[in-house]
Amino acid sequence: MKYLKSFLAFEWITIIGASTVLYTRWDFPLSVCIGLVVLGVILTLYFTKKYEKKEEKKTLDNV
């Protein structure tokens, strides 16, 4: 899980940076940029919960 947390931090920096560049330099609508960030939040939460359940199942199987 320690490697996943560092990846998530890098992912968030990338998503927020890309959204900022899209809004400021390429004149994308703010709603599109916010939508990308919300999509990132949803996908991150979904895959994190899925991964945690998988790890929990492995832990329970080993006991």
Rank of each mutant, 00 (worst) to 15 (best):
Y3N: 13
K5Y: 11
S6H: 13
F7I: 08
F7M: 05
L8P: 01
L8N: 12
A9I: 14
A9C: 01
A9Y: 07
W12G: 04
W12N: 04
I13G: 08
T14R: 05
T14V: 11
I15Q: 03
G17S: 12
G17C: 08
T20K: 04
V21C: 05
L22M: 10
Y23W: 11
T24L: 15
T24D: 03
R25W: 06
D27P: 01
D27E: 14
D27C: 05
D27R: 13
P29M: 03
L30P: 01
L30K: 11
V32Y: 10
C33Q: 04
C33N: 15
C33R: 02
G35R: 02
V37A: 14
V38C: 11
V38N: 03
V38P: 03
L39I: 13
V41A: 12
V41C: 09
I42S: 06
I42D: 00
L43M: 08
T44F: 07
Y46H: 09
F47D: 03
T48G: 00
T48P: 00
K49A: 11
K50W: 10
K54Q: 06
K54F: 12
K54N: 04
E55A: 14
E56Q: 13
K58S: 04
K58I: 09
L60W: 07
D61R: 05
N62R: 05
N62A: 12
